[in-house]
Amino acid sequence: MAETVVIGANGFIGSHLVDSLSAAGHTVRAFDRFSSGRPTFDPSGVELMRGEFLSRADLEEAVAGQDYVLHFLSTTTPATAEGDPTLDVRTNVAQTIELLEACVAAGVSRFYFASTGGAIYGEQGKSEYSETDRALPVSPYGIGKLTIEHYLTYFQVRHGLASTAFRISNPYGTRQHVNKKQGLIPIALRQIALDRPVVRFGDGSMVRDYVYVEDLAAMLTSAIGVEPEHDLYNVGSGVGHSVSEILESLARVTGRELVIEERPRPATFVDRVVLDPTRFVTEFGSRPLTSLDEGVARTYAEILEQMNG
């Protein structure tokens, strides 16, 4: 199998992707700071490479000799990017350009990028969004992701670096870092476990496309190393759940009555984002998806284990 490096290998999606790629037979190099001290994925047969994303030298070492580079690292979250938009530009955007330059120099065959499906389409009032819809992000996080997508096109035209962007919906599940303050489900579950109120932005009617992270990793793995027909794919469940429906699932799974603390909906939060994954499924196939309650149950079990451990 091809030599494959995952940038951000110890992150939420990246760690599951390493496990999935390794199980599928890929030769995997895992690049990360490993700030937690140890890999959260199964390290068996995986080459661990500790390094800094903001170091050009470390990136050059990471991509050397690799066929495929999977960029699944972000220095910001939607919240931190909104708090300091220039941080996203100075770190995520600028350093991804350096990573792309390193890939060109190393002769990488294809570059895969984790873009966002939840923030890139903006508020267009559609029931679901396909890749042919306009990208109209209204948040710094989404704007940064779209900017990188444009740079992928530039590097394809200017340097011949093939690339694929995955517009990923709202992933949730195990290994999600609650301290990054990203992800309604793990944050709310931790609050429930601590007997604290759950924060709800707005009236609970906002709709998102949630996908369990192990399902997402399997979907992405099926596309790695396959010659694609397109350079852009939506990757999600294709099913929308409102915030209220999510909170109802959390209550069912935990058996707890939730105490809700309502806060105003931030101006950059869109009302509804559900992705149309038809293009991806047509090319790479479909697979059974984990139900919402089952995914929530697995996530809650890990949170309780961490708290009691």
Rank of each mutant, 00 (worst) to 15 (best):
S242L: 05
L304V: 12
A30W: 01
S244V: 12
R110Y: 04
I168R: 03
R110K: 10
D203N: 04
P78V: 10
I168A: 00
R265P: 01
Y233Q: 02
R208K: 11
V18M: 02
T299Q: 04
H230V: 04
E302I: 14
Y141S: 14
H230K: 07
A223C: 02
D42G: 01
D276E: 12
G37L: 05
L100A: 01
Y172C: 01
L70M: 09
A102D: 03
L100K: 00
K180S: 15
Y154K: 11
P264Y: 00
E245A: 15
D209G: 09
Y112Q: 13
P43N: 15
A79G: 12
L54I: 11
D88I: 07
Q124T: 06
V239Y: 09
P228W: 00
A9E: 00
R33G: 13
T40D: 13
I246M: 06
Q124M: 07
I260T: 06
D133N: 09
V273A: 08
E257S: 14
A30M: 04
E214Q: 11
H159R: 08
V89Y: 09
A162C: 08
L194T: 09
I13K: 06
N308V: 15
Y141G: 10
A62Y: 04
R29C: 01
T299L: 05
A2V: 04
S169T: 07
G83K: 15
F111N: 03
Q306W: 12
G142R: 03
R56S: 07
T254E: 06
S237F: 08
R90S: 12
K180M: 15
P197T: 04
H71F: 08
M307G: 13
L189R: 02
T27F: 11
P197E: 03
I120Y: 12
P78D: 08
L275W: 03
R38S: 14
A23T: 13
T86N: 14
N234L: 08
N92E: 11
V281C: 10
S205E: 13
G309V: 09
D271L: 13
L17C: 09
Y212S: 02
N92A: 05
D58N: 03
I13E: 07
L70V: 10
H159W: 05
R175L: 13
I224F: 06
P43E: 15
E52D: 15
R265W: 10
A119H: 13
R190Q: 14
Q176F: 09
V138I: 14
N170P: 04
P85W: 00
K181Y: 14
V270C: 08
E245G: 09
S20I: 12
V274E: 00
G25E: 06
G225W: 04
E3F: 02
G25T: 11
R287V: 02
A9W: 06
L100Y: 00
V243A: 09
A24H: 10
F53P: 01
Y129S: 08
P171Y: 01
A251Q: 11
R56A: 11
Q191E: 07
K145H: 08
L54G: 08
S115E: 10
A251I: 12
A62L: 03
L161G: 00
G14V: 04
A162N: 12
G51R: 08
T268P: 05
T91W: 06
S169D: 01
E261Q: 13
Q176W: 09
I185Y: 00
V104Q: 07
A165H: 00
R272T: 12
V226M: 07
E131H: 05
S44A: 15
F111H: 01
R208M: 10
H230D: 11
Y210Q: 09
